[in-house]
Design a protein around this nucleic acid. Structure first.
Length: 581
DNA sequence: GCCGTTTTCGGCCCGACTGTTTTCAGTCG
C-alpha cells in the first residue's frame, strides 16, 4: 500500500476501535478501558500523518499519538498488516448479535441493548418495533410501558436515529429563529447557541441553546412552546429538549447569570477540550463545572467565560480551537495563533457565471461583489471537460477575458480577475491549453472525476497538475462532499510539498457541503508552509455570502490572516499570483 | 487501556433528566 492510502487507513483503524468500544460497552467491560478505545479512535482520526506507513516503518512512534500505548500500538500494527483485528472478531462472537444496531435508538445504551438482545431476542430495529408494539418489552428489567412508547416514537422518526448530523449552515436559520423566539423572555446578550455550532464545526448533531435568566421556568415554558416543535423530549426545571420537524434536536439550558460564563464555556466544549481544562483546574485544587469555578464549596468565578481560563492560567481560547488538538499547550506557551477573521478578506477567489454553470452573469456577479465592498473577484468558470457545467473552451475564455477588460474599465472599486477552474485529467494533465492558461490572472485546478483512484496514482496526478507553471490554486483539494463522498486518497504531505515548490496555494472552499480543505488538513497544510485561499465557489450572487463559512473552517484550521492570500490588497495578491511571496 | 511536577499503581470529569424504582441505574451531553 502506498503512503497515500493513509486517510483510509486512519479512518479504518478508528472505525475498528470504535466498534471494539461498543462491543466492550455492551459486555459491561471496564469503563476506562472502553474510553481508551474511543479516545484512541478519535486521536487516530485526527492524526494528520498516515498511520499505515508509520506502523510499518516506525512502529515505536505510534505511542507518540496521545492515548496510544504499547497495547494499542500493537493492535494498530495488526490492523495495518492484516486488515482486521482479532480482538474485534472475538468480541463479536461473544456478544449478543444485533445489539450494536440497537444503540442507534435514543435512550438505548449498552445496558438496555444487551437486555433487549439477550432476554428478548431482538436483533434488528424492525424486530425492536415489533416487540414494542406487541408489548413484549415492558416485562424486561428497566423497561416499562413508557419505554415502549418512546422507542416506537423514535423508530417512527428516522432522523432521530443516531449519527445523523446536519450541515452547520443548514442549521443556522433554525438556530436564529429559535433565538428570536426566546428574545421574548431574555435579552439577546443572554442567549447563545453553544456546542459544535459555536465551535463552527462543519456539521452539528444538535443545537445547544443557552439562556441566562433568573426565571428559568418562564424560559423553559417559552422554549417548549416554540411553534416548530414536533416533540418535547425532556422538560425539567432548568433544562429541556425538543425536536423540530427537520429532525434537528435542540437542547436548552437555563443558567443563573452568575454561572453564565462557566455554562457557556462548559456547553461549548468540545468534551475533550473541557476534560483537559478540568484536569488543569484539578491540579490547582479547583473544580470547574457548568456552574462556575470552585475552591471547595466556594464559587470563585463563573460569571464570565474568561473566569474559567483565568482559573487555569490560560488566555481566552477561541471556540473554533477548542478540540484538544494542542490549543491548550499553545495557550500555555503563548503561541496561540491570532485567527483570520471574515472582515480581513478583501475579495473572493472562486465563483462562476452564466458562461459556465452559474446563475448570474459576469457583470451581475461583479456588481454584487462590489456592493459587498470587495477589492477583487476572480471569475473562475469551468473548463470544457466538466460537461455538466458546460465549461468554456479556449475561445470561450478568450472572449470572456475581453469582456472582463471592458467591465473592469467601468467598475469603480472592484477589479475582476480573469480566472478559470480547470479540470485535472486522470493523468495529471490540464483541461486547457498552455497559452490560454498563461493569459489568465488566476488559474484554479480541481478534481471533478476519477475520485476513486488509488492513493499513489491520485498523488502523482495532483503533484503533476500543481507543477504546471500557470497554476495558482488547488481548489477544493480532496473533493469531499460531506455525508455523500469521502475525501479522495492522496498523500497530503506530498501535495503540500509540491504546492510549496511550485508556489501553488490550497483552497478552503466555503460551500457548506464541501468546506474543503477541512480543518485538520488546512492546519497540516499551513504547518507544512503552504498558503491558503478562501473561495465561496458562488454560482449566484446570493452564494457570495457563503464566504464566512470558509473563514470558519480556516479558523478551525489555525489559519492566521497572513496565511490567507485573499486577505491581501489587490497589489499584494497579484504579487503572489506572479510567483512572489 | 493510558498515564505520571502527587503517581510505575491507582487514578481516570461531572451533573441533569427519565423511567423505573422506592433510592437508583441508565443514558446523555
Amino acid at each position: 500500500m502506498s503512503p497515500g492510502a493513509s486517510r483510509v487507513e486512519n479512518a479504518e483503524v478508528a472505525r475498528i476501535f470504535r466498534e471494539v468500544a461498543e462491543l466492550l460497552d455492551i459486555q459491561g467491560a471496564n469503563a476506562f478501558r472502553i474510553r481508551a478505545y474511543r479516545n484512541a479512535a478519535r486521536a487516530i482520526e485526527e492524526w494528520p500523518a498516515p498511520i499505515g506507513p508509520m506502523a510499518r516503518k516506525q512502529p515505536a512512534q505510534l505511542t507518540d499519538i496521545p492515548g496510544i500505548g504499547a497495547d494499542l500500538a500493537g493492535k494498530i500494527g495488526e490492523i495495518v498488516k492484516t486488515g482486521r483485528l482479532h480482538l474485534l472478531a472475538e468480541l463479536a462472537r461473544a456478544s449478543p448479535r444485533g445489539a450494536v444496531e440497537l444503540l442507534r435508538v435514543p435512550g438505548i445504551g449498552p445496558r438496555r441493548a444487551r437486555v433487549l438482545a439477550e432476554d428478548a431476542g431482538v436483533r434488528t430495529l424492525e424486530g425492536l418495533a415489533r416487540a414494542a408494539r406487541a408489548g413484549r418489552l415492558r416485562g424486561l428489567p428497566g423497561f416499562g410501558a413508557r419505554s415502549e412508547q418512546a422507542i416506537l416514537r423514535h423508530l417512527a422518526q428516522p432522523a432521530a436515529l443516531g449519527d445523523h448530523r446536519m450541515l452547520r449552515a443548514t442549521a443556522v436559520p433554525y438556530a436564529q429563529a429559535l433565538v428570536e423566539h426566546l428574545r421574548a423572555v431574555a435579552p439577546a446578550r443572554a442567549i447563545e447557541v453553544a456546542g459544535s455550532y459555536r465551535r463552527r464545526r462543519d456539521t452539528v448533531g444538535d443545537l445547544d441553546l443557552l439562556v441566562a435568566s433568573d426565571t428559568p421556568k418562564r424560559v423553559v415554558e417559552r422554549f417548549t412552546s416554540y411553534p416548530g416543535v414536533v416533540e418535547v423530549m425532556a422538560r425539567g426545571a432548568t433544562r429541556a429538549a425538543i425536536r423540530l420537524a427537520s429532525g434537528l434536536q435542540v437542547d436548552l439550558r437555563v443558567l443563573a447569570p452568575a454561572c453564565w460564563g462557566a455554562g457557556l464555556y462548559y456547553f461549548t466544549g468540545s468534551k475533550a477540550h473541557n476534560i483537559a481544562v478540568r484536569k488543569l483546574a484539578a491540579a490547582r485544587g479547583l473544580k470547574v463545572n457548568e456552574y462556575g469555578v470552585w475552591r471547595g464549596a466556594r464559587q470563585v468565578g463563573g460569571a464570565r467565560e474568561q473566569d474559567v481560563f483565568d482559573a487555569v492560567g490560560l488566555p481566552w481560547i477561541p471556540p473554533e480551537l477548542r478540540e484538544d488538538r494542542g490549543e491548550i499547550e499553545a495557550a500555555q506557551a503563548g503561541t496561540l495563533p491570532r485567527l483570520v477573521e471574515a472582515k480581513d478578506l478583501r475579495g473572493d477567489l472562486q465563483c462562476h457565471s452564466t458562461d459556465s454553470d452559474g446563475h448570474d452573469t459576469l457583470e451581475t456577479m461583479a456588481r454584487a461583489a462590489e456592493e459587498r465592498g470587495y477589492a477583487y473577484l476572480a471569475i473562475t468558470d469551468h473548463s470544457p471537460s466538466v460537461r455538466v457545467a458546460q465549461g468554456l473552451d479556449r475561445r470561450g475564455f478568450l472572449a470572456q477575458m475581453r469582456r472582463i477588460d471592458r467591465l473592469n474599465a467601468k467598475l469603480k472599486t472592484l477589479t475582476v480577475l480573469k480566472g478559470a477552474e480547470v479540470d485535472i485529467h486522470a493523468d495529471g494533465t490540464l483541461d486547457l491549453d498552455d497559452d490560454t492558461l498563461a493569459a489568465l490572472d488566476i488559474v484554479l485546478v480541481a478534481i471533478h472525476s476519477k475520485f476513486e483512484l488509488p492513493a499513489r496514482e491520485q498523488t502523482r496526478r495532483v503533484v503533476m497538475a500543481l507543477s504546471h507553471p500557470s497554476v495558482d490554486v488547488f481548489a477544493h483539494p480532496t473533493g469531499r462532499a460531506i455525508g455523500r463522498r469521502a475525501p479522495v486518497a492522496f498523500d497530503l504531505a506530498a501535495v503540500v510539498r509540491a504546492a510549496l515548490e511550485h508556489g501553488v496555494m490550497l483552497e478552503v472552499n466555503a460551500q457548506p457541503e464541501r468546506l474543503d480543505l477541512d480543518d485538520v488538513r488546512c492546519r497540516a497544510a499551513i504547518e507544512g508552509g503552504a498558503r491558503i485561499t478562501i473561495g465561496s465557489d458562488a454560482h449566484s450572487t446570493d452564494e457570495l455570502a457563503l464566504l464566512p463559512f470558509g473563514v470558519d473552517q480556516a479558523r478551525r484550521g489555525w489559519a492566521r490572516q497572513a496565511d490567507v492570500a485573499n486577505t491581501r490588497p489587490l497589489a499584494g495578491l497579484l504579487k503572489l499570483l506572479h510567483g512572489g511571496r
